[in-house]
Design a protein around this nucleic acid. Structure first.
Lengths: 337, 337
DNA sequence: TTGTAGGCGTTATCAG
DNA sequence: CTGATAACGCCTACAA
């Protein structure tokens, strides 16, 4: 009753049928009698038989596995998503390969090549497909979460994009502060732009300001560097040193926002009384900070559910019902606003 | 010059040699002339040929991939390790499968079965192999990081364990506080014990107290629940409510410690002046908290380097030079002590 | 040093 | 409904 090395052949012999029949029974392809099925199934169960993946993939050109590509797993937001995707995929019979591209196009390409060689059944890109890989990937099912690759003009039947409406997110963040009474909200903007950034949020921010009667929006968009704690801290200190007057900060990331809060408190501003701060991402870190951070959260569970459903569907040959989902983030109000 | 469907056969034909020769050249098995090698290699390069993994694994029973099993990727400590391992493995030619066991033995077993079916070349267990899988896994190379499975009595040539000396860690944490002048340090202990816990730290804590002349250690070990923020918060509030007198807390995790700090500040204790707190793990969250948390950090880079080196070695047929590495953590001093 | 040929475990085609 | 049998692409004795 040992699991090792039982082959289709042996099952067939044991059941007194041909390999073809066993194969049919396994794949429920019909064309076998009820009676044969039972006999074969019994033997399969008895031996705990399951097909050899290598042999299978040799003919089918496919392995029951998918690859997930992302810039960096040390980013908790991404780790959370990978976790959800992987666990769900496993339950559905797919193993998952992970690929930390570091946002490096060369590395991304290498990963794609490797995944292709491993004959994955599908791929999921998280926040960062750089190059146009449509040629190489052909009609392999793929899902892009979080961002629409610029080259993806028209959708085909093998790709689905799931993202949040960043303009809306930016708008919501700003509006949250405006409703709390802020009159002068600063928005740290990445200059120069990098692919990774989400300009939509800035646009949403500006729209919100205008909607609330603030016209000179340029004054409130202040260039910043990267979007980590360090930069948030320095940027805030600089704003203060420059004599800027403000009562709100609409940060692009929680990590940046956390740096802002620290700087503000060091400079004896009260948060949220003097300055309100809102972040983006809802990292764990956001809820256990200096001040629990108010933030905008992406609906990652929904991301993942949609992604898996779409991907599985495509991998099973269906056409995606929709190939561009635009979801909405939500405000998680805590102590900084 | 397209990459698709070039087979050994075609390369052989193109180069005017037999498939055997091409295979030998690829695997540098010797038994071919310098001249032939060049000719063959040229064709291989020209076609960007690389062997079909499925076909290869069908004979070799091995796929250039390893599986990493861990309880939960939402735990940042684990995500950090997975990141390091994966990126390194990829550079060495191995893809990586990830498996979130949720600490569930049944799930773990299912993952192991799947990985076996995929013919991984090795496995890495992070903080949590539950069952004795030696039977099933046979002599597959495996590395356990962070914890020695209880059943692993004697080491064989296909398994390596890498962990920190938890007694030492507990000792260091306590000693750090003692040296800072703490006289009454509390240690939250998990009751009842769960597999996941690391009793060694408690022992180290007790030893440190005794070494510093404190004999009634029982008084300072206070039962707690899980080791998250919530529990740390409640546990601290309870200690205060119970009228316990203390000037230090030696927490088992950063997350617990963070809850402690929050509770302390709410109760108007000054940190670190009135009470000093030290955590464990050095999560990102630790360095951007209410107060930047002093903590004990495991040498995860070293974990990963050793793990990869050992695993790769074993996968290439070498015997591990050492099969039980016991490393030391280190104190990262910040604002809470 | 090089080539031939068998087999790894499946799936799929094509007869019965 | 069922059974031979030919691929699939590679590795590796065994021969030459």
């Amino acid at each position: 009753m040992d699991d090792k090395a039982v082959s289709l052949r042996q099952i067939a012999d044991e059941a007194g049928v041909s390999v073809a029949t066993v194969s049919r029974v396994i794949h429920k392809n019909g064309r076998f009698s009820k009676e044969t099925e039972e006999r074969v199934q019994a033997v399969i169960d008895r031996y705990h038989y399951s097909p050899d993946i290598s042999a299978q993939s040799m003919r089918t050109k496919r392995v029951p596995a998918v690859g997930i590509l992302y810039p960096d797993l040390a980013n908790q937001h991404l780790a959370d998503i990978v976790k959800l995707l992987e666990e769900r995929l496993f339950d559905l019979g797919y193993a998952t390969f992970v690929c930390g591209t570091r946002g490096d196009p060369a590395r991304e390409e290498a990963y794609i090549k490797t995944l292709t060689q491993h004959k994955v059944s599908g791929m999921i890109f998280l926040f960062g497909a750089r190059e146009d890989q449509r040629e190489i990937l052909g009609d392999l099912p793929k899902v892009y979460i979080g961002r629409t690759p610029s080259y993806l003009q028209l959708m085909d039947d093998c790709t689905v994009v799931i993202e949040t409406d960043h303009v809306k997110s930016g708008y919501m963040a700003a509006e949250h502060l405006l409703k709390k009474g802020c009159k002068r909200i600063l928005f740290p903007t990445r200059r120069p732009y990098i692919t990774n950034m989400i300009p939509g949020r800035e646009e949403g921010f500006i729209r919100a300001l205008k909607a609330y009667g603030i016209e000179n929006t340029d004054e409130f968009v202040v260039p910043a560097g990267a979007m980590k704690e360090e930069e948030g801290y320095n940027w805030t200190k600089q704003c203060i040193a420059d004599g800027r007057v403000f009562d709100g900060i609409c940060a692009n990331t929680d990590r940046f926002a956390i740096g802002c809060v620290r700087a503000l408190m060091e400079e004896n501003f009260r948060v949220p009384e003097d300055v309100k701060v809102i972040g983006h991402d809802d990292l764990l870190i956001a809820s256990y900070n200096l001040k629990r951070l108010t933030t905008i959260r992406d609906p990652i569970e929904e991301f993942c559910t949609l992604a898996i459903d779409s991907l599985i569907g495509m991998m099973e040959g269906e056409m995606p019902a929709c190939n561009h989902y635009v979801l909405q983030g939500s405000v998680i109000e805590r102590e900084t606003t």
